[in-house]
């Protein structure tokens, strides 16, 4: 165990009985597990047990919508800071490519007990990787978390790449892998679920110059999980 000497002595003497929440040093890595999807700038927050960046089954906040539809984490970050949360913004310094990994993200939890992580998945209409309020373990060790793709429920999944990244604007802002098609007629999204939910995945097609979708079903599909987070509690 990587306990420091003081806590070892405390344990030996049985003095850990009424220990208050202790700050922990975290070292975090995030891996993009997908075949052909990028993640936009990642936002990590550490917060108390009642705060969330998102919750499955609840409506997305306007700040979450902005991140999920356009990749912009500024409003989420400002809200978290205003709520006295700890934030790490854009640790990968831009897009995290398929197979890419950002590591050695250091975070001193201070009095915070829970961890959340979000980033938009591109190319999609409003998919994002989501870790919602993971309780930070108090036992030192290395913890591996598989992270799923959620659908913000704020935009129809038409799978048209048209540059539309503003909240409320239909379409997909970009395909960073430059591997999308064009002139798709658009997938008809008949889902009435406007709450945050597990993303059903994209459909795509194999027609670069038309078809129903601008996405490629051989490149842009995924199965959950889409990201792996490893947290070392020191």
């Amino acid at each position: 165990m990587n306990l420091n000497k003081v806590s070892k002595i405390l344990i030996l003497n049985g003095l850990m009985l009424a220990a208050p929440t202790m700050a922990a040093e975290l070292e975090i890595s995030i891996t993009n597990l997908t075949q052909g999807n990028h993640f936009t700038p990642i936002l990590i927050t550490a917060h108390d047990s009642t705060s969330h960046q998102f919750q499955a089954g609840e409506m997305a906040s306007p700040a979450l919508q902005k991140m999920a539809e356009g990749g912009d984490i500024a409003d989420l970050m400002a809200a978290a800071t205003g709520n006295n949360e700890l934030t790490v913004g854009n640790p990968a310094e831009g897009l995290l490519a398929p197979g890419g990994k950002v590591n050695e993200i250091m975070l001193d939890t201070q009095s915070m007990t829970h961890l959340s992580i979000v980033a938009m998945v591109l190319p999609t209409n409003d998919a994002f990787i989501g870790l919602d309020a993971w309780e930070i373990p108090t036992t030192p060790g290395t913890y591996t978390i598989n992270v799923n793709a959620y659908d913000a429920g704020t935009e129809a999944n038409d799978e048209i790449v048209n540059g539309g990244g503003m909240s409320g604007t239909p379409g997909i802002p970009a395909a960073p892998g430059m591997d999308a098609g064009m002139n798709g007629t658009g997938v008809s999204d008949t889902s009435a679920n406007d709450k945050v939910h597990i993303h059903p995945g994209v459909l795509g097609d194999m027609d670069e110059a038309g078809g129903i979708s601008d996405l490629d079903s051989r490149i842009h599909r995924w199965l959950n999980p889409v990201a792996r987070v490893v947290v070392e509690v020191k």
């Binding site: 997908t34 075949q35 052909g36 197979g99 079903s217 599909r221 995924w222 199965l223 999980p225």
Partner: peptide, 28 residues
């Protein structure tokens, strides 16, 4: 792509990959 990644699933002929020998039940 010559790198290990999470599998995106198989598509199958039933879902539009015309050259596929797989059918819907092979999806996972």
């Amino acid at each position: 792509v010559d790198r290990v990644h999470a599998h995106p699933g198989v598509i199958s002929q039933d879902d539009g990959l015309t050259d596929s020998v797989l059918s819907a039940s092979h999806r996972f």
